[in-house]
Computed example of a mutant assay.
Amino acid sequence: MESFKGESIIDFFNTFKTDLDCLEYLASIKWKGDFRCSKCNHTKFTIRKLNFARDCNLCHHVESPTANTIFHKVKFGTRKAFGIVFEMSATTKSLSSSQMAKRYSISRPTAWLFMHKVRSAMHSSELNPVVGTVYVDEFVYGGKENLKQGRSNNTKKKKIVAAVELDEKGGVKRAYFKRIDDYSSDELGKIFQSHISPEAKIKTDKWTGYKPLKKQYNIEQIKSNTSDFFQINTIIHQVKAWLRSTYSWMHEQNIEKYLDEYSYRLNRSIHKQSIFNNLIIKMMNQNHIGLQKIKISI
């Protein structure tokens, strides 16, 4: 089955008209290479037309296209699940779980749980650290906004550090975010360890928390009120506006998941034609996640 490409929701639902269409799509991804029975390693099989499952010719173990993937035990229909994945990846802003629940006629807790499963696949592999020019800055989200300058220690606000990579023309290439507990070098160092190469040219403001990181990273500290910080300030403004306009509330332990969603779309904005298919592949390569693994209750 050919990979779906495009951003049109009409084309999307014309391609995936039934749950069976979606299962066929998942099967074509899961068994793109050679089939090997998970029980006996036999390579010969029969396809069950009812759901495109593989029936091992030797031990007759039957494996569905969704088994051992994030789509495992999706009880509201694969087509609805595909629709949610499409809207979370190919659209600009996605929807809240309440809106998604109404859109696909499922309960809000069901939408919330599945959307967090999708976000788990949106999490960066952290295998391609930034090696070019990157700006790092922190911001807070939540609680009452004020115009006071400096770093807020308000416990009601969620503290986040951002890293924005620029391309050769000064445009945004990639952006990553990490939730932090405070502004110490240990906490700020989380985003360096996950996403920034020691070879990168890094610019931060003059906060003392960055100074210990200079031992390992190429950091230049400059005043944050200069035009150099325009792009990262724009991204921070956009992500805060997106969070406010889409989600009424989120638990502090979950905010990084929402930021992963934002990063996933932003970092692939020039590949929107294939972003849905790429996310489906990531979901197929990730094991089933239950509510207990999400940790934070609804």
Rank of each mutant, 00 (worst) to 15 (best):
K178H: 12
Y183P: 05
T91P: 00
N254G: 01
L95D: 05
W242G: 02
S97G: 09
L20A: 06
S105V: 06
V118R: 13
Y135S: 10
E187C: 04
T155M: 07
T66Q: 10
N51Q: 04
I196K: 01
T46I: 08
I281T: 14
H251R: 15
G290S: 12
C37Y: 10
F76K: 12
W242Y: 02
K203D: 00
D11E: 14
A53E: 05
L291I: 13
V74C: 12
V134W: 04
C40L: 09
Y258M: 11
M1P: 01
Q193A: 11
Q193K: 13
V74W: 01
R119Q: 02
I289K: 15
K117V: 08
S105R: 10
K223D: 14
I281N: 08
E256G: 12
K272D: 06
I70F: 01
N146C: 06
D21N: 11
I281Q: 14
K117P: 08
L147N: 09
H123A: 11
S248W: 10
S97P: 11
L23C: 06
R36F: 01
V239T: 06
K102F: 03
K156I: 00
I202Q: 06
D34Q: 14
S245R: 15
K30P: 00
K214Y: 00
N225F: 01
D34E: 07
S38Q: 09
V140G: 02
K117A: 02
E261G: 10
T66A: 08
S105M: 04
K293Q: 12
E126N: 15
G189W: 11
R268E: 00
Q292L: 13
I255E: 04
F139I: 11
S269W: 04
D34L: 14
Y262I: 05
W249R: 14
K102P: 14
F13H: 12
V74P: 07
Q231M: 13
C22N: 05
K93E: 14
V140Q: 08
S94Q: 06
T155N: 07
Q216W: 07
S96N: 13
K293E: 12
A162M: 10
F139G: 01
